[in-house]
Design a protein around this nucleic acid. Structure first.
Lengths: 247, 247
DNA sequence: TTGTATTTGTTCGTATGTATC
DNA sequence: GGATACATACGAACAAATACA
């Protein structure tokens, strides 16, 4: 007979578990307030610091928010994807990930996002994309910073049009991480204006495919566009892993 | 002139930020140990409780682990998808993430994963998939639990063949969350054997496409297979968002 | 193997600034 | 503005756990 190693369960963890369970089960609804720390330490039968450590953890996970001096105690927050975005960002920032993997993932995501958007978009969402395109056009003459902001707005509009929170979050995270890795190289590019004009042309063709409801074409164009934009920054020996997404 | 509302930054948050940054930048590598709590309270110029609250938050995010009595202090952990899985599970339980979104994301991921695997797989990786398929075949008569394990092994093999860590991690997390939501319904299905046989047939056709190097076909079959398997558990009014991925 | 020193886990008391009534 | 109750933060104290001689 072999026994498993036991890990001691801290007092604060059991406090976290109980409150977390209450929030997730809906016994504590967003907007409601927890009892005060002193009440909680009586209810849970633990010391003050233990209660506070538990509340800190819950707060960092976005489940509650406490303000100094509030006599009503910590407030239960609406469950938001903030924690998901944070943990995803940590994974993507881990240095074990290469630029090729990140770009490949982004090609995969944005390709499918455009495919979905081509079919599921509402007229309002299409208008948002048109607006973002207009801003991009005027931003060509205002420098890379402006252009990049409009570019981001376009991709966000496409992601929103999918109606899928996971696609939006992963898209945002991967885009931010990729940009963080190579932004300096783009800023210092000798022909940044040419880059912007090419990018504009690519985005325009993707948008037309989305407008026509041609998901397959939108996906292909989006992936190709990302490849053309980022491939030169990907080490040559890793570039091969991007090609299968271009068929 | 209008001013923005300021939110007070707690002492423990600044401690968290500094340690988090050090870990994510690689200045603190996994396996290394932080200074003791008493050292940290001197270095940061805060009280011990504040240090402890910061460590608890870092621990709940999976960045460090501290053991009672360890004179070496808290140990920096390797970046793991645990936090990602936890936050995604929480969102799913709180109904912020619907099953339709999760399945859609999985169709998107696995479709592209198979497309990549069809082109990038090594013969060894193909052999792994064949092995997983063999186990699935024999597991049909051994019950759903065995079958599900082999099924997971197959999808993991495909994800590994892409060579992309993000695809593997996101695939694993989303799959586990989806299975957690509907596993009980599958177990209690009246014709679970028929389900397994159908799934087996689908997997077999996907694998043949991967073997032939036909990425487009592999992607289409994989998405279709997921749809057929999970669509009945997706609320009818949300099922439409899965269809654009089936073209 | 058995201490011994050090650390973490936890509690408690106190001081201070803050939000609500 | 004042009273009250609260969260924030500090630090001392003790128990339990760990590493190391």
């Amino acid at each position: 007979m072999r026994f498993d190693r036991v890990s001691p369960v801290r007092a604060y963890e059991r406090v976290v578990e109980q409150i977390e369970e209450a929030v997730l089960c809906g016994r504590l609804r967003p907007g409601e307030h927890l009892p005060s720390e002193r009440d909680l330490m009586v209810q849970f039968g633990v010391g003050r610091s233990t209660v506070r450590e538990a509340l800190r953890v819950l707060q960092s996970n976005g489940l509650v928010r406490s303000r100094a001096g509030d006599p009503r105690g910590a407030q239960v927050q609406a469950v938001s994807p903030g924690a998901l975005q944070k943990s995803m960002t940590m994974l993507a920032r881990a240095d074990t990930l290469g630029l090729a993997e990140l770009v490949q993932f982004r090609m995969l995501l944005e390709g499918s996002a455009n495919q979905l958007a081509a079919r599921l978009r509402t007229p309002e969402q299409l208008a948002e994309m048109d607006t973002a395109m207009d801003v991009m056009r005027t931003a060509v003459d205002e420098g890379y910073a402006e252009f990049s902001r409009a570019d981001v707005a376009f991709h966000e509009a496409v992601a929103r049009a999918t109606g899928n929170t996971l696609i939006q979050i992963c898209g945002t995270v991967v885009r931010d991480v990729v940009l963080g890795l190579i932004e300096d190289k783009i800023v210092n590019a000798p022909d940044s204006r040419a880059l912007m004009l090419t990018s504009l042309e690519h985005h325009s063709r993707v948008l037309e495919a989305v407008r026509d409801g041609d998901g397959e074409l939108a996906a292909r164009l989006a992936r190709r566009s990302l490849y053309d934009y980022y491939a030169e920054y990907v080490p040559e020996d890793e570039r091969a892993m991007l090609l299968p997404l271009l068929d």
